[in-house]
Design a protein around this nucleic acid. Structure first.
Length: 893
RNA sequence: AGGCGCGUAGCUCAGCUUGGUUAGAGCGCUACCUUGACACGGUAGAGGUCAGCGGUUCGAGUCCGCUCGCGCCUACCA
């Protein structure tokens, strides 16, 4: 075997990350086979918006997706992770419009064509940013299948879906109240309206009644009285019964309107029990208007000013008009009171402008039937939500869903494939048409585009070429797993389930893992204004991609937000350094002749080697379980503990005598008693240390792909880890006896060290250890481990004669082994005495609790035998410990 | 108004589904250690009425009910 180059002394992620990404790509390691005999495993990327750079939340999504896809790929699946980006209609258009505003122009001045050119240029720039960042993080997605929602193939799918739904009468056009953003000048869906609590006012004013009298109403939006078409009262309300059917006189405009009875709208107990009705500007008033055939008086222009229906107020901004209307009412002596009122106000998700309920002709998609199917998919388990508590939220939303307004008065997006002739006929077609299908007259295409989420909803199938029956669709649909943040559960996840079920009959993915949101170290949301934003690329430059990935994965507890602390990332950076240095240590002892781990029979190995293989096996099982249940935090913890505690702290320390005493003549190290046996053990140690390290690197590879490849190559691994088989549990390595014996060994070492600190012995001072009542198995094991024990516990005398152990020196029981630690002179200092007395008190307290429990008849009779037995053993141990401590302190007990 | 989640060491979090020996981790803190892989290190420690109250149970951080506090989502109450 070729002896690889030694690992550099310094761990420098930047020196190898890009090189490895290039090597994987060059080897085509990200691209699955088509066709393939291997089972498919597919993850679709939640396509990032081409609005800007990736944020830390994307880094989390990318990390978790890459972790799973690398793991599945190594397990032998035909793994596809399909990347892409979303045109993000309104979000991106708002960004570019801001840019234009800085240049002193706007999209209308530019014209549709020029504006779209700007949009595409923007998209090109940010798409490149996004792929660059994904690669820097090590994302192993198949770039040969990269998609963009406005690609011809995906646009075709969108058009096809629209036409199909139109023919099925699930898409229709209607004139009704929608959410309107007066700044973006477009309709919005209900989801794009963000409700925020605002401290506003609640004003009462009186409407004069024809023929005398008045009726007092309350409102949070006085300006809408310009569009009032009725006053509603409850039909059973004795206060107002006599007014029903009468008309009120509009005090500011030259018109009158009726007082109607409406049991749905009016709650007689609320306010004055009389409600002003503005059908054109309030959803529940709109419904009331339908019931009573009321006039729908629109009083606003598209940009939020009062229109000609507002009489003297025409031209005023809606908020100026509010003040003006109140002043006018006051002048007429009609104001009847005012109070502050906290209520929810809808804001535009993208520009934060207050949204208006506005009458408009728009395209809608009927949701009920599709929602029922999507509910069924979740209830039957066809789609599994993880964590499962999300089902309640999912069901709640789908169960109360309203039709979806899908048209947007924007330019960036999929243009609606509807064509209108001068006579008002509508032609909807998959391909461009020139003539009306009804009358043959020339037509013009609808200028509007579709809600960006309409195309996102088709992502699982449009990316694979639907509606064509492509090989990809056959091989990779439905997909396996979706990983995304919970905040787009409704926007995206539910809509994908609805639309893909509708068009294919199959749910688009088997599992959905909903992650939390990345926050700062104190749990605050990251935002530019707070200045606590962490840029993933900065973090990669500072700590390396592997540390960023490991941190995010380790923080990803199910259903919780991730408080990202720089300190934590430093800790995982240090983990990389630790791994690197452990590998350097192992590597410097290798001579290139080591057999692979599979070629070694574990039963021929010495205890430390058998033990580390058993720990490895335990870790393999635990990690497998963790990844399989998306417990990224648990998997990371298992790996961290195995590498740092088991392998570095214990195994390598135990292995050092075997490795280091064979540095050859002249090294000044005393030679072993049996050179032949020592050489055999040294050979085993080298092979096992290297082999276990390589297995750990494979286990770690999905989380830390770069450092693991780099180290594995320096250890002479055959081939790249990305293409290596993932470790599997191995019954030959499992070894409960080794786990038990080494646990006892560790306990002896730790008790001895602890005792050294407890009595304040200087580091150089040596101790003796007396061990008694060993089982035959323990005697063999500890005799063999004597050099390691001596070294790790800094002991110099073992197996003291029982007669030479002073009664008061016996201190402890450890790991089921009776030991006594012998002080050189038996002296105990005053400070140490106090600490030992404290410990004695604690031991006695616990002993008392345990004995009380044992003395309780109901415990003995009702608790399982093993629990009772455990308590009994514990009491015995505690009793012994208490006696020994008391003895050391010279106390009588 | 409904729904969901959370409240465990100074900080950030595991553990709760399937109740059982001494409640864990990382960071921070204390003491000691410049021992040839690693000071981004090693060793040993200190630190917790598991938000509160009540219940079920031999036994509750874990199950049930209530209360308080925090966060989020959905919602057309003027």
């Amino acid at each position: 075997m070729r002896r690889p180059e030694p690992l550099p002394t310094r761990f420098d992620p930047a020196s190898f990350e890009a090189r490895w990404y290039g090597a994987w790509e060059a080897a085509g390691a990200f691209t699955p086979e088509v066709p393939s005999s291997k089972p498919p495993y597919v993850i679709l990327i939640p396509p990032p918006n081409v609005t800007g750079k990736l944020h830390i939340g994307h880094a989390l999504q990318f990390t978790l997706q890459d972790l799973i896809i690398r793991w599945r790929r190594m397990q032998g699946y035909n793994a596809l992770w399909l990347p892409g980006t979303d045109h993000a209609g309104i979000a991106t258009q708002v960004m570019v419009e801001r840019e234009l505003a800085k240049e002193g122009t706007d999209r209308r001045a530019l014209g549709r064509e020029k504006f779209l050119e700007r949009m595409w240029a923007w998209k090109a720039q940010y798409k490149d940013n996004i792929s660059h960042q994904a690669k820097a993080l090590g994302a192993s997605c198949d770039w040969t299948r990269e998609r963009f929602t406005l690609d011809p193939m995906l646009s075709r799918a969108v058009r096809h879906a629209f036409v199909e739904l139109y023919r099925q009468k699930l898409i229709y056009r209607d004139y009704r109240l929608i959410n309107w953003c007066p700044r973006c000048l477009t309709a919005l869906s209900d989801l794009e309206v963000v409700h925020k609590d605002v401290d506003g006012g609640m004003w009462d004013f009186a409407y004069p009644i024809e023929g005398g009298g008045e009726v007092v109403v309350s409102t949070t939006r006085p300006e809408t009285m310009l569009g009032d078409a009725a006053v509603a009262v409850h039909p059973d309300d004795e206060r107002y019964k006599h007014l029903i059917g009468k008309r009120v006189v509009h005090p500011l405009l030259d018109r009158t309107f009726p007082i109607v009875a409406d049991a749905v709208l009016v709650d007689p107990a609320f306010g004055t029990g009389a409600v002003k009705v503005t059908p054109a500007h309030d959803p529940s008033d709109f419904a009331t208007g339908e019931r009573h055939g009321l006039e729908r008086i629109n009083i606003l222009t598209e940009d939020g000013r009062i229109n000609e229906n507002g009489g003297p107020f025409a031209g005023q901004d809606r908020f100026a008009a509010r003040k003006a209307v109140l002043a006018a009412l006051a002048e007429k002596g009609l104001r009847r009171g005012e109070k502050t009122h906290r209520h929810a106000v809808g804001h535009c998700q993208r520009c934060d402008t207050i949204v208006e309920p506005y009458l408009s002709r728009q395209w809608f998609c009927a949701m009920q039937a599709m929602a029922a199917r999507a509910l069924e998919a979740a209830r039957s388990g066809e789609v599994e939500l993880i964590p499962e508590f999300w089902i309640a939220t999912y069901e709640n939303w789908l169960g109360n869903i309203l039709d979806w307004c899908i048209s947007r008065q924007l330019w960036w997006g999929h243009r609606i494939p509807a064509y209108y002739c001068a006579d008002g006929h509508v032609t909807v077609a998959e391909h461009d048409v020139a003539a009306c299908e009804t009358c043959g007259k020339p037509v013009e295409q609808d200028p509007d585009v579709l809600d960006t989420w309409f195309s996102s909803g088709l992502w699982p199938i449009s990316t694979m070429g639907w509606p064509e029956k492509t090989p990809d669709l056959a091989a990779f649909y439905p997909t396996s797993l979706l990983i995304t943040a919970f905040d787009i559960l409704f926007f995206w996840v539910a809509r994908m389930v609805m639309m893909c079920c509708h068009f294919t009959g199959k749910a688009p993915f088997a599992e959905v893992h909903l992650t939390g949101l990345v926050r700062d170290a104190r749990g605050q949301k990251m935002s530019k204004t707070k200045g606590n934003v962490m840029d993933p690329l900065d973090l990669v430059h500072e700590h390396g991609a592997d540390a960023v990935r490991f941190t995010l994965a380790a923080l990803a507890s199910p259903g919780r937000d991730l408080p990202l602390d720089a300190k934590r990332m430093e800790g995982y950076h240090a983990f990389g350094t630790k791994l690197w240095n452990a590998a350097r240590f192992v590597q410097m002892h290798l001579d290139g002749s080591e057999p692979e781990l599979d070629a070694i029979d574990p039963t021929t190995l010495a205890l430390p080697e058998a033990w580390i293989l058993a720990e490895l096996d335990r870790t393999v099982t635990a990690v497998d379980k963790a990844w399989g249940s998306y417990r990224f935090d648990e998997g990371c913890r298992e790996l961290y503990q195995f590498v740092w505690n088991d392998f570095c702290d214990w195994y390598l320390e135990m292995a050092k005598p075997a490795l280091e005493e064979d540095r050859g003549p002249g090294s000044g190290v005393r030679g072993p008693a049996d050179p032949l046996a020592h050489d055999r053990r040294a050979g085993d140690v080298r092979a096992v240390a290297r082999g276990v390290l390589l297995e750990a690197l494979k286990l770690l590879h999905p989380v830390m792909p770069f450092i693991t490849e780099e180290i594995a190559a320096h250890l002479g691994a055959a081939g790249m880890l990305i293409r290596t088989r993932y470790p599997e549990p191995d019954a030959r390595r499992a070894n409960p006896a080794a786990l038990r014996l080494i646990a006892a060994f560790q306990a002896m070492v730790q008790e001895t060290r602890s005792y050294r600190h407890l009595v304040g012995l200087p580091p150089g001072a040596r101790l003796g250890l007396y061990v008694e009542k060993l089982t035959p198995e323990q005697r063999v094991a500890f005799t063999a481990l004597a050099p390691e024990l001596r070294r790790l516990a800094a002991l110099d005398t073992l197996e003291l004669d029982a007669a030479s152990v002073p009664a008061g020196a016996i201190r402890d029981l450890a790991g089921g082994v009776h030991v006594a630690i012998v002080l050189p002179d038996g002296a105990v200092g005053e400070a140490e005495r106090e600490r030992m007395e404290t410990e004695l008190r604690q031991v006695e307290a616990e002993l008392a609790r345990t004995q009380a429990r044992l003395a309780d008849d109901s415990f003995a009779s009702r608790a399982p035998a093993e629990v009772v037995e455990g308590a009994r053993r514990r009491a015995e141990e505690l009793g012994h410990k208490a006696r020994l401590l008391a003895g050391t302190l010279g106390l009588e007990r």
